[in-house]
Computed example of a mutant assay.
Amino acid sequence: MPTTPRPPTGRAPPSLLVVDDDVRVRTVVAWQLEAEGYVVREAADGRSARRGIAEQRPDLVVLDLSLPGIGGLDLLRGLRDAGDALPVVVLSGRSGEGDRITGLDLGADDYLVKPFSPGELAARVRSVLRRSGGGTAPRPVPATGLRVDPATRDVELDGHPVQLTAREFDLLAFLVARPRQVFTRAQLLEQVWSSSSGWQSDATVTEHVHRLRHKLGRGRVATVRGVGYRFEP
C-alpha cells in the first residue's frame, strides 16, 4: 500500500490520538496511520481521551461520536468552548446530515462516516494537518524576541541567529508548539527522540535542556520539580 514519506530524520513525527470504543476500529486506524509515519495513541472513551489530550497533547484527534461516558460531541464542544483549536477529524457511524452538520458547526475540521476507507482517512488527516500546520509548523511563539521556523529550522533570539543541533531544534520546536504544557523526560524521549525502549536515558533530555538554556537563557525552558519540563512564554 503506498504511503506518504515519513517525516525527515531529526524531526519528531506528528502525534495522533484515536478515540473509539471499538477496539477493531482503533486497530485498523492505528495501523494505517502508523504506516503513514505518525505516532498513534488510543483512547476507548471520552474521559480517557480528555486525559490524554491534557497529559500528552496530540497534533490531531480522530474522534468517534458514540463514546461511553463523555460523548464525542461533548468532548469536541468542551475543546472549542475553551478556545482550543486542536484539529479534530470526526470518524462516526452517525451518517445523518444533522449529525454531520452538528459536528462541523461545533468545530470539527473534517467528518468521515463509517464504514470508511483507511486510506481516505489518512488523506483527510494529512489535509487537516497541512491546513493547521500540525507536525510541520508550531503555533506562533508567544515569547518576545524568539523566532522558531520549522520549515527552515532557523532560530533567532532578539534578531540574532542561534545555532542549534538537529536534536536541540527538535526539542525546542516540540515544546514551543505546546506552551506551558508539562512533559516528563520519558514523554520527551518518546515524542522527540522516538524512543521508549530504554536505549536513550533521561540524562539525554537533561543534557539537551541544559544546552538550550545555555543558548536561549534559563527562563524559557522551565523545570517543573518532580515532573519534567515545559516551555514558558
Rank of each mutant, 00 (worst) to 15 (best):
Q181L: 14
D154P: 00
F231W: 09
R77V: 01
A35G: 14
F174H: 13
F231R: 06
S195L: 02
P2I: 15
P161R: 05
L106F: 03
T184M: 11
P8M: 06
D202N: 10
S92N: 05
L73A: 09
Y229R: 06
S48F: 04
L171I: 10
A54Y: 02
R139A: 12
L164P: 05
Q56K: 08
G119D: 15
K114N: 09
G98P: 00
V176F: 06
L79C: 09
T136C: 05
R131H: 14
T206A: 15
D59Y: 08
R6N: 03
I70M: 15
E190V: 01
R167P: 08
Y111W: 12
L112I: 15
W31A: 13
P58A: 10
R230Y: 02
R24E: 14
R100I: 05
R57T: 12
S92V: 02
V25Y: 01
L172N: 12
A35N: 14
L129E: 04
T27Y: 11
R147V: 15
V28Y: 08
Q187T: 13
L188G: 05
Y111E: 01
A108K: 01
E120I: 11
L106S: 01
D20I: 06
D45I: 09
A122Y: 06
G226T: 00
G103P: 09
S48Y: 03
V227R: 12
T9N: 08
P14Q: 00
G10N: 00
R139G: 05
E168S: 10
R131F: 02
R220Y: 15
L104F: 07
D109N: 08
E232N: 14
F231K: 05
V224G: 03
D64Y: 04
A173E: 13
D158G: 14
G228F: 04
P140C: 03
